[in-house]
């Protein structure tokens, strides 16, 4: 697998408590990479450094093996970008705007613009200023997908989109992936990252907390379990299990939280007659919140 984006000890400090700190990030060719973190965590800073809008305080970023600063022109020929805070020329129509960006990029077919606009149900004849936030975002999406770039960098791409359009967006991302393109998208919405990303990086306060496949992150997840036994249970029975916490025993009802494998807990519980077991389904949201609160930290 070829590496498309590689940051090496990438740091950017400005102002107070803003920026990114020693970021080592790798995005592979053909994958959909989710960059997850709360607002202000440093997602946009990372993206804007990769794009050479701002320069790293230390460290470096390579895109397609090229230096983000020295070779920015060659890099920009192969990428497209959707800003998180999308502002366009209010007086232009969608069609004028996209035509302008197509000219700046080169090699964009009019058919591609038309098809994308149709799929997103976007009226290109209307001036940007008359469009709703969601419709503006659609113009931004057409702009990002129309040139068929090798790498799409999308900052909070689904913000303002209604659920139906989000589905179309997921489709577009999948199609790009199937065509061998790489997608780097940032989000603070866990469910969408879980839905479409192969790998996820979690960032908080400028630091990368975890980077792994969705599956692996889920395996490490903390989940809550409720076990109902036929008779009252002594709490000491579960004391020796290392990866549980929040243990509460009320008569024959045992409640606890498990981080990672539930194997040991289930085997211990199986010694007794078990009436019922309720497991709260894990989603990335919980994992993310756990990281967010600083409960888990496992990245060297």
């Amino acid at each position: 697998m070829t590496t498309v984006v590689q940051t090496t000890n990438l740091s950017k400090t400005y102002g107070k408590n803003r920026g990114i700190d020693n970021l080592n990030l790798q995005v592979l060719q053909g994958e959909v990479f989710g960059y997850l973190g709360p607002n202000g965590a440093g997602k946009t800073t990372t993206i804007r450094t990769i794009l050479d809008f701002i320069r790293p305080t230390s460290g470096s970023a390579q895109i397609f093996g090229l230096d983000s600063q020295r070779d920015s022109l060659a890099i920009h020929q192969k990428i497209s970008y959707l800003p998180g805070e999308l502002v366009m020329y209010e007086k232009m129509t969608g069609s004028e705007m996209l035509h302008y960006f197509a000219q700046l990029r080169g090699n964009v077919s009019q058919t591609a613009i038309k098809q994308l606009a149709e799929r997103l149900e976007l009226d290109l004849k209307r001036p940007i200023r008359s469009l709703s936030k969601g419709n503006k975002q659609k113009v931004g999406l057409v702009q990002a997908f129309m040139g068929q770039p090798e790498l799409l960098i999308l900052d909070e791409p689904t913000s303002g989109l209604d659920p139906l359009v989000q589905q179309t967006f997921y489709q577009l991302v999948l199609e790009a992936k199937n065509a061998g393109r790489t997608v780097f998208l940032s989000s603070h919405v866990m469910s969408e990252v879980e839905h479409i990303c192969d790998r996820v990086g979690i960032i908080r306060a400028g630091k990368l907390l975890a980077i792994d496949t969705v599956k692996a992150l889920k395996a490490r997840a903390r989940r809550t379990l409720d076990l109902y036994f036929a008779q009252p249970i002594e709490p000491s029975v579960f004391d020796h299990i290392p990866n549980i916490d929040d243990l509460q025993v009320i008569g024959n009802h045992v409640h606890c939280a498990v981080t990672g494998s539930i194997d040991q807990l289930i085997k211990t519980a199986a010694q007794f007659e078990l009436r019922d077991l309720v497991s709260q389904a894990t989603d990335l949201e919980d994992i993310f919140l756990a990281y967010y609160k600083g409960e888990v930290s496992d990245v060297a």
Binding site: L51, L73, S80, P83, V87, M88, R105, G106
Partner: peptide, 14 residues
């Protein structure tokens, strides 16, 4: 200041 420059800079333009 209007933040439209970001979109321009992302294109292959020096």
């Amino acid at each position: 200041e209007a933040r439209t420059l970001d979109l321009i800079l992302a294109h292959p333009i020096r």
